[in-house]
Simulated assay, not measured.
Amino acid sequence: MRISDVAREIKSAESSIRNWEKGRTTPKMEVWQVFRLRDLYQCTEAELVQAVKESMLEEIQP
């Protein structure tokens, strides 16, 4: 799935999603957006949280 597709589905800016993926920023979403991401990526909410944590750690560690 492309970033542009995800952005459209959750009504968010593509740049925001890129920043989340690179660990630059922490996602701030409404509940419906979390559920939509869960459905798009076919994962659980816990897996989404874990992915965010891992992205943030990767950005911090050299």
Rank of each mutant, 00 (worst) to 15 (best):
C43K: 01
W20E: 01
G23I: 03
K11M: 05
A13V: 07
R18W: 09
A13K: 12
T25I: 08
E54N: 09
L37F: 02
R24P: 01
V49R: 07
E30D: 07
R18C: 14
L40M: 13
S55H: 10
A46D: 06
E59S: 14
D5A: 09
K11R: 09
I10F: 07
K11A: 07
Q42I: 06
E30A: 14
E59A: 15
M29T: 04
E59C: 10
E21I: 09
M29Y: 01
K28E: 08
V49E: 07
M29A: 10
E58R: 14
T44Y: 01
R18E: 10
C43R: 03
S4I: 14
E9W: 02
M56C: 07
D5G: 07
D39C: 03
T44A: 00
E58P: 05
W32Q: 04
I17N: 03
S12A: 15
W20V: 04
R38Q: 13
Q33P: 03
E14R: 14
E59N: 10
E14N: 14
L37N: 00
E45T: 11
K53Q: 10
S4E: 13
V6C: 02
K28P: 01
Y41H: 12
T26Y: 13
M1N: 06
K22L: 15
K28L: 04
M56Y: 07
S15N: 05
S12T: 12
R36S: 08
S16E: 04
S4G: 08
A13S: 13
M56W: 10
L40E: 01
